[in-house]
Deep mutational scan, measured.
Amino acid sequence: GAPPLPPYSAGGREVTMKKGDILTLLNSTNKDWWKVEVNDRQGFVPAAYVKKLDSGTGKELVLALYDYQEK
């Protein structure tokens, strides 16, 4: 199953993602919540729920390892 959710501390809205989604990583300075862009929406997802990909394009991409439903 998915890892436990860290307390929400990102101070911005969250976004929903599905397992297998490829998201653009915008900011990973917060260790628990990373800012991503998905379907032209920006928001935060739990860092433990995604994995960085080596895209080779200069853009940082992450793979959704679990479904996440915004609150």
Rank of each mutant, 00 (worst) to 15 (best):
G1W: 10
A2K: 10
P3W: 05
P4T: 12
P4D: 11
P4K: 06
P4E: 11
L5F: 07
L5M: 10
P6L: 03
P6W: 02
P7Q: 14
P7T: 08
P7M: 09
P7E: 15
Y8T: 15
Y8S: 15
Y8N: 10
S9W: 09
S9R: 05
S9N: 12
A10L: 13
A10R: 04
G11A: 15
G11L: 11
G11N: 13
G11W: 04
G12N: 06
G12L: 09
G12R: 07
G12V: 07
R13S: 13
R13W: 11
E14W: 06
E14F: 07
E14A: 12
E14P: 15
V15H: 05
T16S: 15
T16Y: 11
T16N: 12
M17Q: 01
M17I: 14
K18H: 12
K19H: 06
K19V: 09
K19D: 02
K19E: 06
K19A: 13
G20K: 01
G20F: 03
D21Y: 04
D21W: 12
D21P: 00
I22A: 03
L23W: 04
T24I: 13
L25P: 01
L25Y: 02
L26A: 03
L26W: 04
N27H: 06
N27P: 02
N27G: 05
S28Q: 10
S28F: 06
S28N: 08
T29E: 13
T29A: 12
T29W: 08
N30W: 07
N30R: 08
N30E: 07
K31A: 12
D32H: 13
D32V: 06
D32T: 06
D32M: 08
D32W: 13
D32Q: 07
D32K: 05
D32S: 07
W33F: 04
W34T: 02
K35F: 15
K35C: 10
V36A: 02
V36M: 01
E37Y: 04
E37C: 07
V38M: 13
V38D: 10
D40I: 04
D40M: 08
R41I: 13
R41E: 13
R41F: 10
Q42I: 15
Q42W: 13
G43H: 03
G43L: 05
G43I: 06
G43Q: 01
G43S: 04
F44Y: 15
V45Q: 00
V45L: 02
V45W: 01
V45E: 00
V45P: 01
V45A: 03
P46N: 01
P46K: 01
P46Y: 01
A48T: 10
A48E: 10
A48G: 07
A48P: 05
Y49Q: 02
V50C: 08
K51D: 05
K52H: 09
L53M: 07
L53C: 06
L53E: 04
L53W: 08
S55K: 11
S55Q: 09
S55F: 12
G56E: 13
G56D: 14
T57E: 15
G58P: 11
G58M: 10
G58R: 08
K59V: 15
K59L: 14
K59I: 15
K59F: 11
K59N: 10
E60R: 11
E60W: 09
E60S: 11
L61C: 05
L61D: 04
L63S: 04
L63G: 02
A64R: 01
A64Q: 00
A64W: 01
A64L: 03
A64N: 00
L65Y: 03
L65C: 05
L65H: 03
L65R: 03
L65M: 10
Y66T: 03
Y66L: 04
D67R: 02
D67C: 03
Q69P: 14
Q69Y: 15
Q69G: 13
E70Y: 07
K71C: 08
K71G: 15
